[in-house]
Design a protein around this nucleic acid. Structure first.
Lengths: 183, 183
DNA sequence: GAATAGATTGCTTGTACCTAGCAAGGTTAG
DNA sequence: CTAACCTTGCTAGGTACAAGCAATCTATTC
């Protein structure tokens, strides 16, 4: 298609090829993402009985990321602060998370995963990883590595867009470089 | 896990290396999947205002998969039939889906996407793909293709496990052969 | 330098909505 | 009659938005 360089439209031909390839890729990725989303929902539903569900993400952030304030958790998980507040209360009531006064700011508190919380998280993660390992077992090491790398990059890019949309939220690892969004 | 793991060889290292590599990959993938899940939820939340939310999946199935009964939709989406029933009612009330008596079984009805439903779905998909295209624009064609391919394979494997887990009486056949379908 | 009014930040609570499953019903088919 | 298909009532969970309280910061004034 892009070979015939007709004098009248030679400029547009390569452009169109590149763009249509991009659109095709976007459509394909969209298909896979929707499908993946459905599968994830079903998986969550199935794994709901053996413990809480949504607050696991917050617990995980506390275990692997260290003590944090609720605001940081909310920004990290793309959740409203009020939602995090409730989830944290539930976690505290179940003894998985403890509140501790922030020595630097007595308005809020620092959240810590208790030993029980760490154990619960490890238990959950072990089971999850076992299932994933069974899934990945027949894969080639190359494919495994590629999937993780590319999904990681997709996450990075999506998070950047999300944060850009929501404004500057707390962020720990990824240096999001967007201009100041004052006003 | 407890496979052969033959000791005594001059180098048992490769076995161990293989297993630990698999576990490491599973852990890495788990991390990325959890993160991706949160990002997807946030994205859905943000896109909630411009139309329905969850019933889009059912509408999509009807558009790309043709007329179906509610039971088939439920099996395909891993949802309870009652949930599908309600969502279908909503879709019908909004004029996106029409009921039509099944000529072969008057107990239920066949569901069809109306023209408005098709238009709504196309509109949604166009917008979704535009966002994804913007996201993928800086990617190399190789990375794009790889991500789609690997995510597709992950979906295949997960769907297989899901179906086998739900038992053979469930919904075999519906979600298996959707080669060219784009949802 | 101290006091303090106003703005900002951190979190909680009230409310409403959406999604989902389970259980109990109707209705039709075989 | 029994089984298949669908609907409806109830319940539960997760989430956002708005409103509000408490602690801190900033700036102005004396």
């Amino acid at each position: 298609m892009s070979k015939g360089l007709v004098p009248g439209c030679d400029r547009a031909a390569p452009q169109i090829t590149v763009e249509s390839a991009l659109e095709e890729a976007a459509a394909g990725l969209g298909t896979e993402i929707v499908r993946f989303s459905r599968l994830l929902a079903a998986w969550k539903q199935r794994a709901k009985t053996d413990g809480g569900a949504a607050d696991r993400v917050l617990l995980a952030r506390l275990v692997v990321g260290g003590d944090q304030r609720a605001t940081d958790l909310a920004a990290d998980a793309f959740l409203d602060l009020s939602t995090v507040s409730r989830q944290v209360r539930s976690l505290v009531e179940r003894g998985l998370v403890a509140r501790r006064p922030d020595p630097e700011d007595r308005r809020g508190s620092l959240l810590t995963a208790t030993d029980a919380g760490r154990a619960a998280f490890e238990n959950y993660r072990r089971q999850r990883d076992a299932e994933l390992a069974a899934l990945l077992a027949p894969w080639s090491p190359q494919d495994r590595a590629d999937l993780i790398r590319l999904l990681g990059r997709l996450n990075e890019d999506m998070a950047t867009r999300q944060h850009t949309r929501l404004g500057p939220g707390g962020d720990q690892g990824a240096a999001v470089e967007q201009g100041e969004i004052r006003t």
